[in-house]
């Protein structure tokens, strides 16, 4: 069996498709350049908000606040990370702050138990070869969306940046101010959590189909 490296060609944040934004022009207060940056990054940032917050109104507020914050803090941006990673950092903070406001008990540091072992997978039915049209049916997509929303926020934010927005482990760590080890641990937990949820969903359907 061969390890798979996923292509990010279908993602709009794919670096090669992004326009070159001049940091110098941005810092000099060039409004047209700022507008170009907003246009280039608004779709992925809105998507991040949708995935993190689960509703369009909160996602739109987070989107607007992200660029207002970016405008305010442009002068402090030293270019140590890429512009994309910097914007993702602001957007992630914005989403996490919104979640914190809604649920004050939420704490991003809740998951610092790096040494504990992973919970072993429980559902061992192989649904991976189900036909595409079944896996991509509306109902299946809803189950997947719901599962993502059920992820604890500290895992969800890592999963969204890494697996949906296709940031590298390093970029995800930079955006969230976490260590790479911490990102890897959270990513594995998030993936196993979603695998379990999808396994529950699809295996139930497989069993139903096989029961006359």
């Amino acid at each position: 069996m061969k390890a798979v490296t996923f292509s990010n060609a279908k993602h709009p944040m794919n670096k090669s498709t992004l326009p070159e934004i001049s940091l110098e022009a941005l810092r000099a207060g060039d409004r047209a350049e700022f507008a170009r940056m907003v246009d280039a990054y608004s779709a992925p940032i809105y998507r991040l908000g949708l995935r993190m917050l689960g509703n369009p109104q909160d996602a739109e507020d987070a989107l607007q606040n992200t660029f207002i914050n970016a405008l305010t803090h442009l002068k402090d941006f030293e270019g140590r990370s890429s512009l994309a990673t910097w914007l993702y950092r602001i957007a992630s903070n914005e989403a996490l702050m919104t979640l914190r406001r809604k649920k004050p008990s939420f704490n991003l540091e809740d998951l610092q138990t790096e040494d504990s072992e992973e919970t072993p997978p429980e559902i061992l039915i192989d649904w991976s070869a189900l036909p595409e049209d079944e896996l991509l049916a509306n109902e299946s997509k809803k189950a997947l969306d719901a599962a993502i929303q059920q992820l604890p926020a500290a895992l969800r934010v890592v999963f969204v940046l890494r697996d949906i927005e296709n940031l590298s482990i390093k970029e995800t760590a930079e955006a969230l101010n976490l260590t790479e080890t911490n990102v890897k641990t959270r990513l594995l937990r998030a993936r196993l959590f979603l695998r379990e949820r999808l396994s529950a969903y699809h295996s139930e359907r497989i069993v139903r189909k096989e029961t006359p």
């Binding site: 798979v4 996923f6 279908k10 993602h11 192989d126 649904w127 991976s128 070869a129 896996l135 991509l136 299946s140 997947l144 993502i148 697996d163 949906i164 296709n166 993936r191 196993l192 979603l194 695998r195 999808l198 396994s199």
Partner: peptide, 12 residues
């Protein structure tokens, strides 16, 4: 297989 498929579905 199922973890790989899960990630793949999210990326679609």
């Amino acid at each position: 297989n199922t973890t790989r498929r899960t990630i793949d579905l999210v990326q679609t």
